[in-house]
Simulated assay, not measured.
Amino acid sequence: MGLVEKVTEVLYEVIDPELGINIVDLGLIYKVDVKENNDVIVTMTLTTPGCPLHDSIVGGVESAIYFLDEVGKVDVQLVWKPAWTPEKMSDKAKTVLMG
């Protein structure tokens, strides 16, 4: 398993505290890049720009990735375009939230 896959896998452990669903199934992770020196860049968004749990979620992402021994530095880039919409959620997350 490559490092991109390992990073994506540990991000399933980061739960949005308000919704109780992991950030991957919520569709908040847009891209995971790994540089030659194993530095990881995660491009992600949040459900709303004014999300009060911004620091908690971003900190959770960083902590989860740093858990992997082979990772160098972690850079979480928060973007607002494209904006998050419920359509970005996995079928699993949609079932949990919308029945």
Rank of each mutant, 00 (worst) to 15 (best):
V32W: 07
V32D: 10
V32T: 03
D33F: 06
V34N: 14
V34Q: 15
V34S: 15
V34F: 15
V34H: 10
V34W: 15
K35Y: 05
K35F: 10
K35R: 05
K35V: 00
E36N: 03
E36D: 12
N37Y: 02
N37G: 06
N37E: 04
N37I: 03
N38I: 02
N38W: 04
D39T: 00
D39F: 02
D39P: 02
D39Y: 00
V40N: 07
V40D: 10
V40H: 09
I41R: 13
T43H: 06
M44N: 11
M44P: 14
M44E: 09
M44F: 10
T45Q: 06
T45F: 00
T45M: 01
L46F: 11
T47Y: 10
T47S: 03
T48D: 02
T48Y: 04
T48V: 03
P49W: 00
P49G: 00
G50Y: 14
G50F: 12
G50N: 12
C51F: 13
C51S: 13
P52G: 02
P52W: 07
P52M: 12
L53Y: 08
L53I: 00
L53D: 01
L53T: 09
L53M: 08
H54N: 09
H54C: 11
H54A: 06
D55L: 11
D55M: 09
D55V: 07
D55I: 03
S56A: 04
S56K: 15
S56M: 06
S56G: 04
I57H: 10
I57M: 05
V58G: 01
V58F: 04
G59A: 03
G59C: 09
G59F: 12
G59R: 00
G60T: 07
G60V: 09
V61D: 12
V61E: 12
V61K: 11
V61F: 13
